[in-house]
Design a binder for these strands. Structure first.
Length: 277
DNA sequence: TCCCAGGCTCTCT
DNA sequence: AGAGAGCATGGG
């Protein structure tokens, strides 16, 4: 599917298909990747700082990364071993799905750190992406650890030790109390984020919904973006509108096995076109 | 000024 | 169980 070269503390991913960096890193599933004017992306995940870019010939370069970190973190983070070509073939019987996948070409569903994902999507509720990013950045700057001017995402244990007043500088509004409840339940073991992969999607969703401020949409985002439940189908306002306009409210059957990945194509399509079709 | 944003909780039927 | 108000904050 692709070829790896480890050289000069860089990882070269050659011949990989279906991997577009802007579509993947700035499509609303992750909130902390930044791109400079030359197309180089920078970010932190799983407490690892990374820079990456895509060359003209399609090779992706991960900078300052050794083989061990690649194998432990980035290979899975970027979902490199999933065959997106097969998924696209599977849904292309439906013309609208085919178009959406073409529009969002190269989106990969990331496998992000469970606590960061849960906390980020708690913050996302009834909010817009620009402000979500601002709140998350302030959270990391206030309570994370610095790497090259970037910050790690503070652990649930760290947040659990804070108060509402401590979180005031985030200006997260009514969501602050939800962040604290989530941190306390995760840090205290009442909600086990590391067992969710092995549960059925319904059991996993119910486990997450023990947290005050986590409903079906936030839970499904966590399950999809950090727990490999690719049949999770988060229904936000954009998706609800798109589903109505595109499919009269019902997801086509051929999309069901990979509903979550199709959801990303539809979300991207809906936002980019503002549904003016 | 009003409306809306990758929703959820609470209350009232 | 289903509908509707209220919620903090900031951008358009």
């Amino acid at each position: 599917m692709y070829n790896l070269i480890f050289k000069n503390n860089c990882v070269y991913i050659e011949g990989i298909e279906h991997f577009d960096l802007p579509h993947t890193l700035d499509c609303g599933q992750a909130f902390r990747w930044e791109c400079d004017e030359k197309g180089r992306w920078r970010g932190v995940a799983y407490n690892k700082y990374l820079e990456l870019e895509k060359l003209e010939n399609g090779t992706i370069i991960l900078y300052n990364t050794d083989k061990e970190t690649f194998d432990c973190v980035w290979r899975d983070y970027f979902d490199l071993d999933r065959d997106y070509g097969e998924i696209i073939v599977g849904i292309s019987g439906n013309e609208i799905l085919k178009n959406a996948a073409e529009y969002g070409k190269g989106i990969r569903v990331l496998n992000q750190e469970p606590w960061e994902t849960l906390c980020s999507f708690i913050i996302s509720q009834n909010n817009n992406i620009k402000r979500i990013k601002g709140i998350i950045n302030r959270l990391c700057e206030c309570f994370g650890e610095e790497f090259n001017g970037f910050y790690t995402f503070p652990s649930a244990e760290r947040i659990a030790g804070l108060s509402l007043e401590d979180l005031a500088p985030l200006r997260s509004g009514f969501r602050a109390k939800y962040i604290l409840d989530a941190a306390k339940k995760v840090a205290g073991g009442e909600v086990d984020l590391f067992n969710l992969k092995s549960l059925s999607i319904d059991d996993a969703r119910n486990e997450l919904m023990k947290i005050n401020g986590v409903g079906p949409k936030v839970a499904d985002c966590a399950l999809l973006f950090s727990h490999k439940h690719i049949s999770a189908f988060p229904k936000d306002v954009w998706i609800k509108r798109a589903m109505q306009v595109l499919f009269d409210g019902e997801l086509p059957a051929e999309a069901l096995p990979y509903a979550g990945i199709v959801q990303q194509y539809i979300f991207f399509y809906a936002r980019e076109t503002k549904l003016s079709l």
